[in-house]
Design a protein around this nucleic acid. Structure first.
Lengths: 196, 196
DNA sequence: ATTATCTATAGATCTATAGATAATGC
DNA sequence: ATTATCTATAGATCTATAGATAATGC
C-alpha cells in the first residue's frame, strides 16, 4: 500500500489525468469509476476518499482537459514563424484526429458539454473564450475595426477547426476523413485571419 | 392491448422516431429501453419482439435521423430564392441550436459516431457525403476546376456549420452562443460557395 | 492516532428473457 | 393458432458505502 499524504496527492493527480484522457476518448458517460481507478493502479473502494461523487471527478477532469488545452495552444504558437498556420496545422491534423485522448476538449467534449452539468459547461465556455481571444490576437488586423473584425473572424475559424475534427473522427472512410482535414487546412491558411 | 400487424408496424415506427429524437438530445448512450418504450406508450417487455438488441434500435434510429436530415435539407433549399443562404440560415439558427432532437445528426451524433459501431459510422458517412454533394451543387462555380473547387469549399462550409452549432450548444453564455451563430451566418453568406 | 488504500457488498439501474394475456387472422 | 403486448424477473453492471489493513505522522 502507498500511504503518505504525498502518495495521496499523486494518486489524485493520476486519477484525474486518466479520467481527462478517457472522457475525451469515449465521452463523459462511458468510463466507470472501477475502470479509471484500475488504470490508475488502485482499487475502486478508495475512490470516494478522493472525490465526492463520480460527477465531481468528471467535472475536475473536464477542467484539467481545458487547462491542458490552454498550455498546448500556447506551446504550438509560441516561437512559431507563422503562429496562425502552426495552430491550424496542429489542430486540423491526422495526429489530433487520431488521438482524442490528448487532444482538444472543445471538439471531444462538445456534445457532452451540451448535455452536461453547469460546471462542465462553464469550463467549456472559458476555453472557448481563450481560443477566441488567442485566435483574434494572432490576426494582425490593423484596420479601424480591427479588433471587432478579428473577433468575428475568430468565431468562424474556431467553428471550422472544431467541425472539421468532429466530422473527420466520425466518418469511417479514411480517404474522406483525410480530404476534409486537407481541405480545411488549405482553406484556413489561404485566407489567414488578418488577410481579409 | 393493440394487436394487429398494422399496430405492430406503427409501434415500431413510433419507437424508432422517439429514439431518433432522444439520441440527438442526449446522445446514443443515455436513453434506456424502458424510457423509450414508455415514451412510445408501451412497456419494455415487448421491446425484443421489435429489435434484436438495444444497439440495433440505436443503429436504426441513427439511420432514421439521417433520412430525416436529407429530407429537411431538400425542403429548406427547394424553391428558395437563394438556396445556399437559406441552408446556412436554417442550419446556423437559434432554432436549430435549441432543438437538437429534430435537428441535424452530423452535429448531434458526431461524438457518438466517432466512438460507435460501424453501422452508425456508415450512416453518418453517407449523410456527410450527401451534405457535401448538396453544398457543392449549390455553388454555381463556372471556372474550369469548378467541380473540384466546389467540393473542397463544401468540406470547409460543412465543417464550419457543424462546429458552430456544436459550440453554440455547449457554451452556457447565451450571448456568446448567439454571437458565434451570428458571426458564422454572416461570414458564410458574405462569401458564398461560388463567389471566390 | 490518523489515514490512504483495500476487500466486500448493498442498492439502484439497465438489458434481456420467460411466461401470461387478450386480441387478430386463418 | 398465432402474435402483439404485458407483467415479472434473472443477471450484469455501476455508484456508493462499510469495515479491515497497514502504513504514516505526531
Amino acid at each position: 500500500m502507498g500511504h503518505s499524504r504525498e502518495d495521496k496527492t499523486q494518486s489524485h493527480e493520476r486519477i484525474v489525468d486518466i479520467a481527462a484522457r478517457r472522457i475525451r476518448e469515449d465521452g463523459t458517460a462511458t468510463p466507470g469509476v472501477a475502470e479509471i481507478m484500475s488504470a490508475a493502479g488502485l482499487t475502486h473502494g478508495g475512490f470516494y476518499k478522493h472525490f465526492g461523487s463520480r460527477d465531481d471527478l468528471i467535472a475536475e477532469a473536464t477542467e484539467r482537459t481545458f487547462a491542458q488545452s490552454s498550455r498546448a495552444m500556447a506551446e504550438v504558437t509560441d516561437g512559431a514563424d507563422d503562429p496562425y498556420a502552426a495552430f491550424v496545422d496542429w489542430y486540423v491534423s491526422a495526429e489530433h484526429r487520431d488521438h482524442p485522448g490528448t487532444g482538444c476538449g472543445v471538439v471531444a467534449l462538445g456534445a457532452d458539454a451540451g448535455h452536461g452539468e453547469e460546471r462542465i459547461r462553464t469550463a467549456y465556455t472559458a476555453q472557448v473564450r481563450r481560443y477566441l481571444a488567442h485566435l483574434a490576437q494572432l490576426s494582425g488586423d490593423a484596420s479601424p475595426d480591427g479588433d471587432e473584425e478579428a473577433r468575428r473572424r475568430a468565431a468562424v475559424t474556431l467553428s471550422t477547426l472544431v467541425g472539421a475534427v468532429l466530422v473527420a473522427r466520425a466518418v469511417n472512410d479514411p480517404e474522406l476523413s483525410d480530404e476534409i482535414l486537407g481541405d480545411v487546412r488549405a482553406a484556413l491558411k489561404a485566407e489567414p485571419p488578418g488577410g481579409g
